[in-house]
Design a binder for these strands. Structure first.
Lengths: 213, 213
DNA sequence: TGTACATCAGTGAACGCGCGTTCACTGATGTAC
DNA sequence: TGTACATCAGTGAACGCGCGTTCACTGATGTAC
């Protein structure tokens, strides 16, 4: 007989096997349900089917877990934005629109990551890789802004850093005010994507990067 | 002797006298220190120097207190924005800049109100006056956008609702990413006010509401 | 002006609860020989 | 291929703590007469 192998619960016996990942999944689930504030270490352990002391084998404390979630979030965010921007192909302005839509779709489709990244109140230095991951995600926006700015004649070229901060703030503002499904959000008379796209077009026109319609 | 009158603690005896207000002050203090999530009913009572059961005479629960703080915040915000806009005087574009600066200065100077308003995750319907207060604050932005839009020739007049949503999102994005002093915020190579002002100028130029420099 | 009384706004003790954290422990796994 | 052993990743019981909430109560205040 072999009932000691392959026990039915999915758990492979005494050792969980992949608790670290399971805790991160738990955190994402719980943050999505109750926000980053409503998430507790004990809850995560329970969700993973493990005693309340077990998480301490993998994370120093609750904040370390959230910081890890946020770091991964920024890495995914970077990849997601990078894919949308696609090095400015096929054409920078269309790619820039894609980038904006990707920003919003990430906030909507991954609200738990987004919360951990921007609303958990983490110090960016609390985890060694966190600030770096955050900077790398922002760098995608910045490269895109540079590519667009480069198309203006040198003497009236807008500063790309400023452009990227503007676009970031605008996207984040739309995402956090209107972009997600939860209770506190405002209704909007149009899709968030359209609102952002219109703003970006107006903004780029204001920079002289695209002509009047 | 009269030691029963005017006891030294500031408390006027058994009755607090103004506990409702004191609890709101406490909430503001505590939210400013620890964010809306870190604020507890028991803390507020302690801060006000009152037993932990006393707040229930004035608020149904913790959320009711926060909702009241948020409602008041929106009322103050509305007044603050209204004062800055000043009916478009002396001149609509300058007044619009004032409005943007006022948005950021409120977020910076009243972080506790701002958090309660935008980051507490309250349902806007949780308090009867909350949505109304929020709408009235937004209406100031909207009126300002209308005044600016009205200066464009009729056939190319931008929709004022859209304009005001854009400005709101931009201001909120800058305020929440860069605008405040706490730990999670990013550093910025320029003052937040300048960043916003530049964006608004570019945006208005993109709408054709102001000419090229 | 004084008194009786209703109402109001507090007290303080108690409760159950869940959290974070520590601890000595033990079952499972991997590896050297 | 088997065995001994070190290491790892869990357990489960325990702790102190603070929170939210309820309750019967009581001191203070206001008002009718």
């Amino acid at each position: 007989m072999s009932w000691t192998r392959q026990p039915p619960g999915g758990r492979r016996g005494y050792h969980h096997g992949n608790l670290r990942e399971a805790l991160i999944d738990a955190a994402l689930d719980l943050i999505a349900q109750k926000g980053p504030a409503g998430f507790t270490f004990a809850d995560a352990a329970r969700w993973a089917g493990v005693s309340s002391a077990a998480p301490y084998r993998h994370f120093r404390d609750r904040d370390a877990l959230i910081a890890d979630v946020a770091r991964r979030g920024f890495e995914l965010f970077e990849a997601h934005l990078e894919r949308a921007w696609n090095d400015g192909r096929p054409e920078p302005f269309a790619a820039f629109e894609n980038l904006g839509r990707a920003y919003l779709s990430f906030a909507r489709d991954e609200p738990a990551y987004y919360s951990a990244m921007f609303e958990a109140g983490l110090a960016l230095d609390s985890d060694p890789g966190l600030r770096q991951a955050s900077d790398r995600a922002f760098a995608v926006l910045r490269r895109a802004a540079e590519a667009l700015a480069a198309r203006a004649p040198a003497e009236q070229r807008p500063p790309a850093l400023m452009m990227s901060l503007h676009i970031w703030a605008l996207s984040h503002g739309i995402a956090s005010l209107f972009g997600r499904g939860d209770a506190g959000r405002r209704a909007l008379p149009m899709p968030a994507e359209e609102l952002l796209e219109a703003a970006v077009l107006i903004y780029l026109r204001g920079l002289g990067l695209i002509g009047n319609r």
